[in-house]
């Protein structure tokens, strides 16, 4: 057995470590919790999130699975129906398509279709997003698709704090929850107060208050939006940055309140523009705050193409801080 991990005291750690400590806490606090997924055990996790958990908790609770996404996600659904609290890791959102039938037709459908006889307290974690030069089949951002589905809760921790504490909220939810961890965040370091024990997943968070324009985003785009806000600030434009945190159910109130203050809005979403979560956010603003707006709604999304391998093409495909700055500037100071 490895040396024990520090027990939840450090308040500065990487996003990866925060994910791991969240899993450890869950395993230590509830004997019904167990983990399933590809290479989570001996390999230590594709992104090294689960490294050391097999040695600490053993093979019964840290279950390496074969490459059978549909079977092990469905097994998670069945185990949740029969009294356990499974946490299933799908290596990346791209592979979750192989398990989509189990997620959509079973996990989110059975509670309603059985007339409330069964709940499915299942947590699915998966990596999402681009930026690692691994081409289209490993770089998609499909969290917006999942946010389309009634019955799911969709969490997108963008900070170390949320990576550390959203899992606890997810496990407390009697419904299926998907946690999307953006691949570019695992090495990011961050702080949270040492006495912090949980986060409220019902609310979006205003990361930076501003008067001139709201930058609304989530996940891997949060830090691009914060960078953009810094750059805009040097030009005298005061941007507000909102982290949606939970894509379903959306915290519409925080969005509307922000837009009512700034009267301008750019939505930044790594998903494709057409039919995206940014479209949903924009439409809610149009429905509920149309007359608060001083300018048309704008979006910065991924280009509508499979994410290419070549670095210059991938960078051009994904939302970037410079694009956000340009779009926000044009909105506040039309040329």
């Amino acid at each position: 057995m490895n040396a024990p991990e520090p027990t939840f005291t450090p308040n500065r750690m990487t996003y990866r470590e925060a994910c791991k400590q969240a899993l450890r806490e869950a395993l230590l606090s509830d004997p019904r919790v167990f983990l399933m997924g590809e290479d989570i055990g001996r390999y230590g996790g594709c992104y090294a999130v689960t490294k050391g958990l097999l040695e600490e908790f053993g093979e019964e609770r840290i279950r390496d699975t074969p490459l059978s996404e549909s079977a092990f996600v469905g097994a998670g659904v069945g185990a949740a129906m029969a009294g356990m609290r499974p946490i299933v890791e799908i290596m990346t959102v791209n592979f979750s398509l192989l398990a989509l039938d189990q997620i959509l037709n079973n996990a989110v459908t059975i509670p309603h279709m059985s007339g409330g006889q069964f709940a499915i307290p299942l947590v699915i974690r998966m990596a999402t997003g681009g930026g690692r030069r691994v081409a289209a089949q490993h770089s998609r951002s499909l969290e917006g698709w999942y946010a389309h589905i009634p019955g799911l809760r969709v969490l997108t921790p963008a900070t170390v704090e949320d990576a550390r504490f959203m899992l606890k909220s997810a496990l407390a939810d009697p419904n299926p929850v998907i946690i999307f961890e953006h691949v570019m965040l695992y090495n990011m370091e961050g702080d949270f107060p040492s006495d912090m024990k949980e986060v409220d997943i019902a609310r979006a968070k205003v990361h930076r208050a501003g008067r001139d324009v709201s930058l609304i985003t989530y996940g891997g785009s949060l830090f691009k939006a914060l960078q953009a806000a810094d750059a805009l600030s040097s030009e005298g434009i005061d941007a507000e940055v909102i982290d949606l945190r939970t894509l379903r159910p959306l915290d519409t109130k925080t969005i509307i309140d922000s837009v009512a203050r700034t009267r301008r809005c750019v939505i930044i979403d790594e998903g494709w523009r057409s039919g995206s979560i940014s479209a949903e956010v924009g439409m809610r603003i149009a429905e509920e705050a149309f007359f608060e707006l001083d300018a048309p709604l704008r979006r910065v999304c991924s280009r509508e193409a499979p994410i290419p391998y070549a670095a210059h093409l991938e960078d051009a495909c994904l939302p970037q801080a410079a694009t956000i700055v340009a779009v926000a500037r044009e909105l506040v100071r039309p040329s």
Binding site: A75, V77, G78, A79, P86, N106
Partner: peptide, 9 residues
């Protein structure tokens, strides 16, 4: 796959 999960539980 549900059978796997129920039996595993």
């Amino acid at each position: 796959p549900l059978a796997l999960g129920v039996a595993l539980a």
